[in-house]
Computed example of a mutant assay.
Amino acid sequence: MWTTSLVLLLVTLLFSACSESSSHFFHSDTLNDDAPVKPSKSTVSAKGWDTCSIPCDITVKLLRDEKHSICGQLQQSLLAFGRSTRKLMRDVMEEQQRALEILSAQVAELMTKVQTLSSEVQRSNTEMYTIKPAQSHGRDCSDIRDNLLAVVPKIPSGIYIINPENTESSFEVFCEMDYMGGGWTVMQRRTDGLTDFKRSWGDYSDGFGNLAGEHWLGLKKVFQIVSQKDTRFQLHVALVSKDDITSYASYDDFQLDNETQFFGLHLGRYAGSAGDAFRGYDQDQNQDTAPFSSSDVDNDGCNPSCSFSNRTVESCSALHNQTGWWFNQCGLANLNASPQDTDSSQRASILWETWRQNGVPLDIKAVTMKIRRIPTNN
């Protein structure tokens, strides 16, 4: 502030001195170029203040020195400002980098927690019923129910170990004990679409999936169950549509041929509300007595191809996205059907085409196939 005031004072004095000197120089009656000019000693301002007249050359020198001083100070200020600005920007970038590293560490930690939680949820789904399989209580779930009813009032659904009669093998099955009287051995379940049913003959023969969730028990195991002496089994198909409508189809007799005959299907009388899709509407659609087919074992009766709906089909399994079923040119039922990966024009989901609403087949989101002993007339 004092520098600015000094500059203004010097400028004022300069103009005052220069004005007086000019007036004296131009209006003097004895003007002489060679005569020295004597500066006046003092003047009185209009307000009565005493001021000193400073020669112009001294004033210019003072102004020049002051200008150089101001420029130097300004340059130093600019340099200091530039250094502080660069330091500030560097500090901000370093702070952002530290914040980014902290955020990355938090994201990595969160991902680890999500993976851990996902594993725990999956394990929880696996253990949602019986955490540890019970020891074998019978030949099948119906036999387990009959044996346990004498000692416990309510038998829980869950995973049990069975040992079918006249076999040396024991294996785990899921028993439904709270559905229509219980005693049901689940041979197939579809609920969430997480299990891939695009499988080869070996998988359909041995079984796959999670017994507490989606699974296919396996044709060998089902054959051992239904082939026990002095037994007869019924098949029950429970369906749930995408609109949560329920329906069922039941057969009072269910049998399978052995593996050398490709586990051919044999069904008894139908009852239910979903229609008899296994037999269809005419003999060409009848899947009863059909052998099982898969993507690598073709028993579907299309030799060399089948024609329906203005289409030519060489493999029913290929038509149904490489899934396995009791196909017969190709039929109206495939509870193992899988959504197509690319070709939306092909059949796309679980099929039971006799279950209709207003003449249109319902979209099925869940299905369970289960078998249970029924009394024999011996």
Rank of each mutant, 00 (worst) to 15 (best):
T3I: 14
T3Q: 12
L9C: 08
S16R: 03
S21F: 06
S21I: 05
H24S: 08
H27L: 13
D29I: 13
C52S: 12
C56I: 07
L62E: 05
K67M: 05
G82K: 10
D91M: 11
M93H: 09
Q97F: 07
R98Q: 14
L100F: 08
E101C: 08
L110A: 13
V114L: 13
T116C: 03
S119L: 12
V121K: 11
S124I: 06
E127M: 13
T130A: 00
Q135L: 11
R139T: 03
R145H: 12
L148G: 05
V151I: 15
K154R: 10
K154C: 03
N163F: 03
N166F: 08
E172Y: 00
E176M: 11
G182K: 03
M187H: 01
M187I: 15
W201G: 04
N210L: 13
L211D: 03
E214Q: 14
G218S: 11
L219R: 04
F233E: 07
L235Y: 02
L235P: 01
S241K: 04
S241F: 01
Y251L: 04
D252M: 02
D253W: 01
F254V: 12
L265P: 02
L267D: 02
A277Q: 08
D284A: 12
P291L: 07
F292H: 03
F292G: 05
S305C: 04
S305W: 05
S307A: 11
V313M: 07
E314Q: 09
S315G: 03
Q322H: 08
G324C: 03
F327H: 05
C330S: 04
A333Q: 11
L335P: 01
S338E: 15
T342I: 14
S345F: 04
S345R: 14
Q346N: 12
W352Q: 08
E353L: 15
K370S: 15
I371T: 01
N378H: 10
